[in-house]
Nucleic acid binder design. Structure first.
Length: 572
DNA sequence: GCCGTTTTCGGCCCGACTGTTTTCAGTCG
């Protein structure tokens, strides 16, 4: 059983326990265990199989370790079944509704035997919710409204969509300069998490009433759902939620630190504050009543005895300890990227010509670009056979020869076939400057078969880079299942780099695996998989993933100058 | 239920808003 599946069971236990009114700290321990399972890069089944101590994992003690073992053996555990017996399956669905928490779910179940969203809708429409303890007409209205939002919205949006929303909102807020002195987006958006559930916008304004008015004038806004002197909750057209919070200049840094999160990072920081007899909240860092920091984030971290932690690292994955020891990595930046190593043209499924792609890369200030069209078995993309490849490579070299101070690499994205062979003759591939190997078919193979398949491909001697290693499409297709250690070790042995594919639907390698690969001494490349000139701009998404994965400039091959890069990939 | 440079017991982050109350519980971030 996979970590994510076990984690889901722990979350279910946490939710059921919460509805039953269990101890809050115990509930949190189940959630913490789920989080650990979701974020770890090793499969816990493997660790258990090797007899490793699961209690060494953060948030996993004796009791949770036993539950995990039990789940691995039987698919469930006694505690979960016991909880499920007391409450109907699926009742935790109700917790998805805004304004409906464990206490209300409990009342709904005990009084009206409501356990599904459908039943709740019927009861609310029939006016049966009002009159329940702690609930009135407003609660009923809110439930009906929230049911609509849940139905209409899948929930989280991609960071790419979020960037567009922030752009639009930001242009509007900038026009309100006289009223809104400063605004900035905190939350998961600022941490550049791959998907974003809502936006947290911090506002500095002398006249909050006027600022509220101004925000209400934003054309993209559907309605303001909550308004107080400190905060404003709004829904955009399309249902996406944006929270606005007001702060003064002397608190702004503390607010930014607090609302950037993550929750776990914030808790870790507040614990450190406690140890130093300080109190950290969204208004500042306090000794007793006296504020010792708050105007900017830098001074807060400094007073906590920590290096400044870049937002992308704030996930409580070791960054607080590293910051305390002064050992945070110097993260890669967008400006470090000197070339793109994955681009398609009209020859297969791209939209632009070789020359257009090269020119666009040059315009970005790059020193090089690899043209990497598809191979024959990807028929939907009109993939090339050896003959076409030969001609195409020649065309690429010809365009490249006409470019001054720019290196155009003739490459390919070759399919890794079902059995791990490459889709084109190795002799043909070895003529090329840059070879990416990718899985585009048979995603459902067993772990053993998939591992062997990829290991065989990267061991061929013809491959420079493993393209979008996990093959996932966020929210659409699950990642491939293979033995990460074995595949990474094979890549290391054969000097094959791992691609961080910057496409917002992929973001693959995922951040936690960047960290793992780095620890194993592997090199990464950040590429866009561009299918048109405009796509080259997606590179920033890959850089964000790399930053979230603790990568420095030196971990990423395409930060090298053209000359150094060519040397690095030269075939022996 | 977890965890330990004040601890193997007694802690466990902190504040705002809403609705239903008549002083606060529930929910959220």
């Amino acid at each position: 059983m996979r970590n994510s599946e076990i984690a889901a069971l722990f979350r279910e236990m946490a939710n059921l326990l919460e509805i039953q009114g269990g101890d809050a700290f115990r509930i949190r321990s189940y959630e913490q265990a789920a989080r650990t399972l979701e974020e770890m890069t090793e499969q816990v089944a493997l660790l258990a199989g090797e007899g490793k101590k699961l209690t060494d994992l953060p948030g996993i003690g004796k009791s949770h370790a036993e539950k995990i073992e039990e789940i691995l053996k039987t698919g469930t555990c006694a505690r979960l079944e016991e909880l499920r017996k007391a409450l109907p399956p699926g009742i935790t669905e109700l917790l998805r509704l805004k304004g409906v928490g464990p206490k209300k779910v409990k009342v709904l179940w005990e009084r009206l035997k409501i356990s599904t969203l459908e039943q709740l809708k019927a009861a609310a429409e029939a006016g049966k919710i009002r009159g329940l303890p702690g609930m009135g007409e407003k609660t009923e209205e809110h439930i009906l409204k929230s049911l609509k939002t849940v139905a209409a919205q899948a929930g989280r949006i991609s960071i790419h969509e979020a960037v567009e929303i922030v752009g639009e909102l930001g242009r509007y807020l900038d026009l309100q300069k006289k009223i809104i002195k400063r605004w900035t987006v905190a939350g998961s958006f600022r941490r550049r998490v791959e998907t974003v559930g809502d936006l947290d916008v911090l506002i500095e304004a002398a006249d909050r009433a006027a600022a509220t008015e101004a925000i209400g004038g934003f054309a993209g806004l559907a309605e303001i759902t909550e308004r107080g002197p400190e905060k404003l909750e709004a829904a955009l057209k399309g249902g996406f939620q944006v929270d606005f919070r007001f702060f003064e200049a002397e608190n702004f840094g503390a607010a930014l630190q607090y609302f950037t999160g993550s929750k776990a990072h914030g808790i870790a920081c507040r614990k450190i504050a406690q140890q130093k007899k300080l109190k950290l909240n969204e208004y500042g860092l306090f000794r007793g009543e006296k504020s010792v920091a708050g105007r900017n984030e830098e001074e807060i971290y400094e007073k906590l005895g920590l290096e400044f932690v870049p937002p992308e690292l704030r996930e409580d994955r070791g960054e607080v300890e590293a910051a305390a020891a002064g050992k945070l990595p110097e993260l890669i930046e967008l400006a470090d990227i000197r070339g793109d190593l994955h681009a398609h043209t009209k020859e297969t499924d791209g939209h632009d010509t070789i020359a257009a792609m090269a020119e666009a890369a040059r315009q970005r200030g790059y020193q090089y670009l690899a043209i990497t069209d598809h191979s024959q078995s990807l028929t939907v993309a009109r993939g090339m056979d050896e003959k076409r490849l030969d001609k195409h490579a020649e065309a690429v070299r010809k365009v490249g020869a006409g470019l001054k101070d720019f290196m155009l690499l003739a490459g390919i994205e070759v399919d890794i076939l079902k059995d791990g062979r490459l889709d084109l003759a190795e002799s043909a591939l070895k003529e090329l400057d840059w070879v990416i190997a990718s899985v585009h078919s048979y995603f459902e193979q067993s772990e053993a078969a998939m591992t062997e398949r990829i290991v065989r491909a990267v061991s061929s001697g013809a491959v420079h880079c493993l393209g979008h290693p996990f093959g996932r499409l966020i929210g659409q297709r699950d990642p491939l299942v293979f033995d990460v250690d074995k595949v990474f070790a094979a890549c290391k042995k054969h000097s094959v780099a791992l691609e961080i594919n910057s496409h917002p639907d992929r973001l693959d390698l995922p951040d936690v695996y960047c960290q793992r690969a780095k620890e194993m001494g592997l090199k990464m490349v950040i590429s866009t998989d561009a299918h048109r000139t405009l796509d080259l701009g997606l590179i920033e998404h890959g850089v964000w993933v790399a930053r979230r994965g603790w990568l420095s400039k030196s971990d990423v091959l395409n930060t090298a100058t053209a000359a150094a890069f060519r040397k690095a990939i030269a075939r022996s």
